[in-house]
Design a protein around this nucleic acid. Sequence first.
DNA 1: TTTGACCTTTGACCAAACTCCAAGGTTTAT
DNA 2: ATAAACCTTGGAGTTTGGTCAAAGGTCAAA
Lengths: 134, 134
Amino acid sequence: MYRIGELAQRFEIKTDTLRYYEKHGLLSPSGRSDSGYRLYNDEDEVKLRFILRAKAVGFSLAQIQELLVIDASRAKWACQDVKGIVEKKVVELEQKIAELTQFRDSLQQLADACCGGPESAEHCSILEALEVRQ
Amino acid sequence: MYRIGELAQRFEIKTDTLRYYEKHGLLSPSGRSDSGYRLYNDEDEVKLRFILRAKAVGFSLAQIQELLVIDASRAKWACQDVKGIVEKKVVELEQKIAELTQFRDSLQQLADACCGGPESAEHCSILEALEVRQ
DNA sequence: TTTGACCTTTGACCAAACTCCAAGGTTTAT
DNA sequence: ATAAACCTTGGAGTTTGGTCAAAGGTCAAA
């Protein structure tokens, strides 16, 4: 059994983060000491590892919550349920990548069109492009 | 001269957004009516177009603020100043794209390793991967 | 015993970019 | 005149994932 500080330290996160996860229903300690201290067991540790792993590959806490629901009663779910969540996330990421890539390309275009030298910005093609009426 | 509602409608944004931009120093109306209504002129309109254009290519409002400072006194700045801001943003975007791509690749790997069928999630390789101790 | 580290709860704060609400004044068209 | 649309201000709320602060109780080592 770990106290909150021990578990937090073990995973290099803040105690406040663990309290936050508890408050938001992600991970509650399996017990409390007589004085009210949170006590986390091995299963709690496994669950925290799960959460942090999922975060590390880009899942939001809400999405992790979904995965945790499945993980809690694995036999009641199918592999396609899990894979569905992951694939949905992949699509989401791909869309965001596409958007950011578009931003990047637009900006690269602007940058390429600019002389970038010490000339006065009076006639800067980037500034012009941002305010032209068309 | 436009009142706030007219300008907002023209650019398909909320009046509250204009008030927000004013409060945060991005765009103040050039005048006020006797009753206190905001009055925006043609220059204000040009400036708003600039802001929205910059937003559309991914600049944050803080970054747009920087660009506006330059735009306000173009002769005092050089093309390289403007280009510098744009190039910095490009780098930022490239880093974010790289991060998201990594997420995507990790998740795609997980998805590929999963049968994704109706089999019980009891031994789901994705769930296993997320909680394995290693 | 003492002291400092640790723990609790509650509620507020932070970031960024809006958006909403309430109370009340102004304008416009009927 | 009337009613509805429009405007003002100030402050709070939303989202997401934390983080901080205050007040006070508990634990462990010296």
